[in-house]
Design a protein around this nucleic acid. Structure first.
Lengths: 293, 293
DNA sequence: ATAATTAGTCCGGTATTTCAGACAAGATGC
DNA sequence: GCATCTTGTCTGAAATACCGGACTAATTAT
C-alpha cells in the first residue's frame, strides 16, 4: 500500500533532516532538469490520485501554518500547477479551504472548523479530557498541553497557556520529533525496543541545539517511563523548560494521549512534586482502562 | 460547474423537507429497482471523482453527527461500496478519519482536529471573536452563539451554553434553514430581494412546527435587519426562545458572522435591552469595516 | 439447518481525470 | 522599453482510478 504522506514532509527513507517548515523545496523547472538524475524511487511523470493530492495539500498547509497561494502549494506538494488549481477550487467550493485577503491566498475554511469541532466534541472521552485541561490550567496557572502521536512524530493537540510571562509552548499541530519530548517517551511504551528503533527517523535524535540523544538512553527512558507511569525531562527541546507528562489510556490499555505541564526549569522541587501528583491523578481519572499487566 | 454537494443532503430541486438527520435514505437494492424510474437528473452509472466523494463523505459524517460504518457511508453518499472502502482507508491512513470502537465505525480523526484548530487560531480576527464569545458568556451567563452561512444554510460555528437549565442551543455544525433564525436575516442583508428568492430553497420557509413564513414577510425582515443593524426573533425555531443577533463585518463590509443570544422567551424587556446593547457593542467592535453606505 | 443479509477484499475494463504544455494578461525588474 | 516571472485558464491525450460485480466469511433470520 502506497503511503500518501510524501517524502517531502516525512523523510522516512533518507532523513536528511529536511523537515519542512519553510518553502525550501522550490524545485523550479530548470533545477529539476539539472539536478534530475531521477532521484531513485520517483519517476518524473508520476500521476497521483486526487485524494492523495488533497491529503498532501492539507498537510502542507498545516505545516506551513499560514495562508498560501495556489502556485506555491503546487511547488510545495510537487504537483502540476493545473491540477493544483483544480483541486484548490474544489476545496474552496466545499468550504474546506477559504480565500484569505485579495492576493489569492488560501487557508483552511469553515468546513474544517466544523469537522474538527465534531471530532473533539462528539465523543465524551475527549470532552472530559478538555475539561481536565481547563481545570488544570485554571487551578495551577501553569501551561498545560494535551499531546499525542501523529504518524511517527509528536504533536500538541490542544493547550492552555500560562497567563504569566513564561510562554514557550509549541503551537498546536506542529510536528516535533518524538525524542525531544517527555510525552514522547510515554507514547512509545507499548512498543518493543526494536519497534522503537524502526519507528523513529534517525535524524530525530538530534536536538534543536545540536546535541544528540544516544539511542540507548532514549530506550532506557522509555523503560523508566513505563515503570514510573509518568515521564519528566528538563532542558530538552528548550533550555529553560521542565516538562512532565502523565498518560491517558484508551480502550486497549494503550497510551493514546498525554497530559503535560511545561514549567520554567527553576520551579522548586516541592512545587514540581505537587504538580506531578495532580497531573497523574487527573490523567488516570481520564483513562478508559488501567495499565496493561 | 458541477456542485459537489449532493442532492441527498441539500434537496435543492424538490425540497420534500427531506432534511437528512437520520439515515432515512436506505435505498436497498430491491427498493432501488422497484422505485427506480431513474429519479430525473441522476444517471445510474454515474462516475464521480475521488475528491468529490471525499467531500460528500465528510459532509455526510458531519450531518450524521455520529460514527458510521463504511457500508452505511456508501449508502448515504450513494457511492459504490468498493470505492467507499477505498476512500475510507485512505482517509484513515491520513488520520482524517479514525476508527471508533471495534465494529468498523469511523468518524473524524486527529488531523481534522488540527486543521480546524488551524482555521480558528491562525487568523487574529477569529481569535478575537472567540474571546468575545467567552466574555459575553461569562458576563451574562446566557447562551451565546457564533453563527454564519454554509452554502444556503445557516450553521452555528461555536457556542457557549448557559449554565442554567435552559439549554436548547442547536449543535455546532448542524445546518438549519436560514429563515428559521434571526442571524439568517442579517446574513442576507447584502443580497437583493431577487437574489434572496433564488438563494433560499422554498421548503426552508416551513418552520419545524409546520407554520409557513410568507416570503414577503421574510424579505421585509431582512430589510428591517439591514436598517436596524440587528435582528430579533421570538418563538421561531423553538417555541420558548427569544433570539437576538448582531453582525460582524468582514473586509468588504459584508456580514460574515453574527453573534447572538438565545434567551428564554419570558426574559424581561429591560434585560433584553441590556443584552442587546452589549451584544451590538461587542459585535461592532469586532467588525473589520463599517456598514457599507 | 438453511437462507439471507452484511462485511470486507479483489479484479479487469473503461470512462474519466490527471497531466503537460500553451496561452494571455498582469506584475516585476532593469 | 524589453525581458522575465507569475497567475489563472484551457485543451488534448493517455494513464489510471473508479466502478460493477464476483467471492468469501461472518452474522442474523427463518
Amino acid at each position: 500500500m502506497l503511503s500518501v504522506i510524501p517524502e517531502v514532509f516525512k523523510p522516512l527513507e533518507r532523513p536528511d533532516t529536511a523537515i519542512l517548515t519553510e518553502p525550501i523545496c522550490m524545485t523550479d523547472g530548470t533545477l529539476e532538469l539539472t539536478a534530475g538524475e531521477t532521484p531513485p524511487g520517483l519517476r518524473n511523470g508520476e500521476r497521483r490520485r486526487g485524494i492523495d493530492r488533497v491529503i498532501m495539500l492539507l498537510e502542507a498547509l498545516l505545516q506551513h501554518r499560514a495562508p498560501l497561494k495556489a502556485g506555491d502549494i503546487a511547488k510545495l506538494i510537487n504537483a502540476p500547477r493545473s491540477t493544483t488549481y483544480e483541486i484548490v477550487n474544489s476545496l474552496l467550493e466545499a468550504e474546506m479551504l477559504e480565500t484569505v485577503g485579495n492576493d489569492g491566498l488560501v487557508y483552511f475554511g469553515r468546513a474544517m472548523h466544523l469537522f474538527g469541532w465534531a471530532y473533539s466534541h462528539q465523543n465524551a472521552h475527549y470532552r472530559r479530557i478538555i475539561e481536565a485541561l481547563d481545570g488544570l490550567a485554571a487551578e495551577t496557572g501553569e501551561t498545560v498541553q494535551l499531546c499525542g502521536l501523529r504518524g511517527n512524530k509528536y504533536a500538541v493537540l490542544d493547550c492552555r497557556d500560562s497567563p504569566g510571562p513564561f510562554r514557550i509552548s509549541s503551537d498546536v499541530g506542529v510536528e516535533v520529533p518524538i525524542p525531544w519530548t517527555a510525552s514522547g517517551r510515554l507514547l512509545l511504551t507499548h512498543m518493543s525496543e526494536d519497534e522503537v528503533r524502526g519507528f523513529i527517523p534517525p535524524g530525530d535524535f538530534r536536538l534543536p541545539d545540536g546535541r544528540l540523544i544516544p539511542q540507548a538512553d532514549f530506550l532506557a527512558d522509555i523503560g523508566t517511563a513505563r515503570r514510573q507511569d509518568y515521564s519528566e525531562t528538563s532542558s530538552l527541546a528548550h533550555r529553560f523548560t521542565w516538562c512532565m507528562a502523565a498518560p491517558i489510556r484508551g480502550n486497549g490499555g494503550r497510551i493514546t494521549f498525554t497530559l503535560c505541564f511545561v514549567l520554567p526549569v527553576d520551579t522548586g522541587p516541592e512545587r514540581r512534586a505537587e504538580l506531578l501528583g495532580l497531573l497523574r491523578e487527573r490523567a488516570t481519572g481520564l483513562s478508559l482502562s488501567g495499565r496493561p499487566t
